[in-house]
Design a protein around this nucleic acid. Sequence first.
DNA 1: CGCCGCATGTAAGAGGTTACATGATTCG
DNA 2: CGAATCATGTAACCTCTTACATGCGGCG
Lengths: 185, 185
Amino acid sequence: MPTARSNPTEFAILGLLSEGPRSGYDIKKEVEERMRHFWSESFGHIYPMLTRLHGKRLVSVRTVPSARGRPDRKLYTITAAGRRALAAWFQSRPAAPRPRNELLLRIFLGRHAPPDVLLRDVAAYRAQMVAALEQLRAVEQRIAASSEDTADAVYWRLVIGFGVDVYAALDRWGEVAERELRRLG
Amino acid sequence: MPTARSNPTEFAILGLLSEGPRSGYDIKKEVEERMRHFWSESFGHIYPMLTRLHGKRLVSVRTVPSARGRPDRKLYTITAAGRRALAAWFQSRPAAPRPRNELLLRIFLGRHAPPDVLLRDVAAYRAQMVAALEQLRAVEQRIAASSEDTADAVYWRLVIGFGVDVYAALDRWGEVAERELRRLG
DNA sequence: CGCCGCATGTAAGAGGTTACATGATTCG
DNA sequence: CGAATCATGTAACCTCTTACATGCGGCG
């Protein structure tokens, strides 16, 4: 028998819908605003997945007319079966991520590169880390401030803490890496 | 015009071949032994890719008989065109990784999970980090010890340093996360 | 006037994994 | 005796992204 592969996208969507009805468009936005540093989804994946979820009766749909001119919205609502599926997902083990870090691949093969190229790559990487850190701290404060001590707050803080810790470590590594690479130029 | 997508697998293979001729089997082994913490490849991807690389004349092949009974080995050698392609790759920018961390997705949706499940997930994650750290330190020492100060050593140290720093940070985060989660049980 | 936001969706295809097929040898 | 190592490869399949199609309204 083929090992049943857990499809995390399914549960990411189901998870967001567990907070209330949303459209595909809403889901995309929310993934970007709240889950950016550990998750991503594209429209080309979300829309077919919502159709599939509906086929499995894990969500229901209703079409809501938009403001004049705008295309109608399709609001998806999680069903009882959907909530059960979400709960059942936690009984599976998370798949070990298969590592694929292109920056490190480049450095690993660095002998073949002009030194300034790697330096620029690392600098760009660090800039991304710093930007991500700032954005995360903003989210952190949003949660801390508007803290109606929801059941979610604990979890969200853990997830944000992960980002903060990792980005900080990466930035520190980048600083050292830059120094090393500069000595090769 | 469709944005030409850099295919990192191509260059991972070309990069290993730049050190000398290898078979598909060798490449798989080396990825696992030396690049484990930042890269991965499967046979089902390597073998077709080698054929493709050969079609593009970036590598050449020769078949070498194995010890009696064993299937023949196909040794691939990088061509001059292959080395040029590898050098050209460094002129492109590394693609920003799209984040997909299933553990964090689970924690983010943690409200729906029985508390002990997340605790077990984090513990398993930490165990992986610790194991990875140990393995990395072993590789580190191998390089430091057998250090014929090759041109590669600098780069390899940077790559290993990345792993060490990140794993350590993740482990520390995991420690905190475990404490937090235990208070919910 | 042009871009951005809103809003849905499809088609093509890249990229990658898993499972299967085959078979001898060596090691515990 | 069974498992692991050596060694190559294919076929089926899944996941996910990119690009395209469509079109209005508001803002600068």
